[in-house]
Design a protein around this nucleic acid. Structure first.
Lengths: 109, 109
DNA sequence: GAAACACATCGGATAATTCCGATGCATGAA
DNA sequence: TTCATGCATCGGAATTATCCGATGTGTTTC
């Protein structure tokens, strides 16, 4: 993950519909959800949501898989992790004191 | 950090100029940089960059302080940490296996 | 084959971003 | 006081994002 890959990922998440859809997919890992279920959850038109999904997919945050005539969407945790590492990298370089509190809170996992 | 605070933060970072400026400020913690220095680094007009800086400030990612007639800008690491925790929260809830690799890589700090 | 279904894509209208020059408003220097 | 400096804000033009209905494509069912 670098600036060129982080920017589309940030832009993809910087929209209420897409952020909510992505979080929903993360909570439904690893089974995923069909596009139709996501459309229903969004409350938007099918065509509108489809373009949102395309933005998430292009950013690498969502991968899809065909299952019969529906499309199963799944969150790509590796990309999310890459984005978080990219954001953390700057403050971690030689300045551990800045990221220690983050590690402490993440240790809940 | 919740959806309402994460969305402006994501949108603020989802722009090449603002992302670069924020990363520059993180690397210059805790001294900070003046607005003029950031303008020079951006290559944009002073007025254009000022509006970008206002977006970062409104999202809580940058705090400023007056020093004579210049304005010292500093990255707010707490907000960055809050954003990362918000993104990580979903995948950590009851599914530690998803976040363990993140912790492993972050342990470089 | 025909119809129904799930989803993607196109066309176009509206709204929001982005960018700049010009101007305003403080602060420090002469 | 007068002038220069550093920065914020205003007004407006160009670009981009967002949203929807309509249509196209592939898949299952009858």
């Amino acid at each position: 993950m670098n600036v060129d890959t982080a920017l589309p990922a940030l832009a993809a998440l910087a929209h209420p519909t897409r952020l909510e859809a992505f979080r929903l997919l993360v909570r439904h890992e690893p089974e995923g959800l069909s596009t139709g279920e996501l459309v229903d959850a969004s409350g938007l038109t099918q065509s509108t949501f489809s373009t949102h999904l395309a933005v998430l997919a292009k950013a690498g945050l969502v991968k899809s898989e065909k299952l019969g005539r529906q499309q199963i969407q799944r969150a790509d945790i590796d990309t999310l992790r890459g984005l978080m590492l990219f954001l953390a990298k700057d403050c971690c370089q030689g300045r551990a004191e800045l990221c220690e509190p983050l590690l402490a809170e993440l240790s809940c996992c």
